[in-house]
């Protein structure tokens, strides 16, 4: 589904990703962990099409298409979804109107007729229930004055509505208490299917208690330095990142 080869990217002339290789098959959940500043969020941003980052080398193929050739909105229409670490407040645009525009823009891209208002509303209400999202939030301006938890829940709600093939969760657990974390994780889990994949970017193992990954990768200094199963996450939780840093540095010396 997603194939990343030798991906290098920089911002303001500073190289952040220094050769990423990653293969994700349909149905798989991959966790990307790593210390702060290792490039986790950059990877998420580059995949979603954030323009501030310059891709200097490598390829990214998504369902056979060259992802790097596509604009952010085209990537979304192809089925990529980024849940933001810091969701943006947009005054004056209601969540419901925003989502309706998004759904119909994606349908247009895929050559489908726009959804009529009644069907759209029915679908949205079902999805809102899925993430215990209060109907009143839908009519409010997008994320404006939402609490941290409400914003993250809104991200997962949007994901449920847009039903992406590949969801990228960028530190969705940051700033969440345990109840909010559980609701968010349940939302994500309910969307798991043999066709859908996810990249879960997180600093802590905590989220992975709820969203159990198939693979765990450690990103450090812009490279994936270690990969393993879910047990790698427990090891990291127990031992921290220092032993990995030491391993990498030892290799660098050699």
């Amino acid at each position: 589904m997603l194939s990343i080869n030798g991906l290098r990217a920089s911002i303001d002339g500073k190289e952040i990703l220094k050769g990423i290789n990653l293969e994700i098959k349909p149905g798989e959940v991959h966790a990307i962990m790593g210390p702060n500043g290792s490039g986790k969020s950059t990877l998420a941003s580059v995949l979603a099409g954030r323009e501030e980052y310059e891709v200097t080398a490598g390829t990214v193929t998504f369902d056979g298409k060259d992802l790097l050739e596509l604009a952010a909105e085209q990537r979304a229409a192809e089925g990529i979804f980024l849940a933001f670490q810091y969701p943006v407040e947009i005054p004056g645009v209601t969540t419901i109107n925003f989502l309706k525009t998004a759904v119909n823009e994606i349908r247009k891209y895929n050559g489908e007729e726009p959804l009529d208002a009644a069907r759209f509303l029915k679908m949205v209400r079902e999805k809102a229930k899925l993430v215990s999202m209060n109907d009143s939030l839908l009519k409010r301006a997008l994320n404006e004055g939402f609490s941290g938890g409400e914003k993250k829940r809104n991200e997962i709600f949007q994901m449920a509505v847009l039903e992406p093939k590949l969801a990228i969760l960028d530190e969705t657990d940051s700033g969440l208490d345990i109840d909010a974390l559980r609701i968010v994780a349940e939302g994500v889990n309910s969307l798991r299917s043999p066709e859908r994949s996810a990249i879960v970017v997180t600093h802590y193992q905590r989220l992975l208690d709820y969203i159990v990954p198939d693979f765990v990768h450690v990103l450090y200094k812009g490279r994936i330095v270690k990969s393993g199963g879910k047990e790698l996450a427990f090891e990291l939780e127990e031992k921290g990142y220092d032993w990995i840093k030491a391993e990498v540095e030892a290799q660098e010396v050699n």
Binding site: E73, A76, L82, I90
Partner: peptide
């Protein structure tokens, strides 16, 4: 940032600009 947020949900740049300015 708002523009990228909207585009990441499948809304074209032109449509996102329109929505933001209309809201303004």
């Amino acid at each position: 940032e708002a523009l990228f947020y909207m585009r990441s949900r499948g809304i074209s740049k032109a449509e996102a600009m329109s929505l933001l300015m209309f809201a303004f």
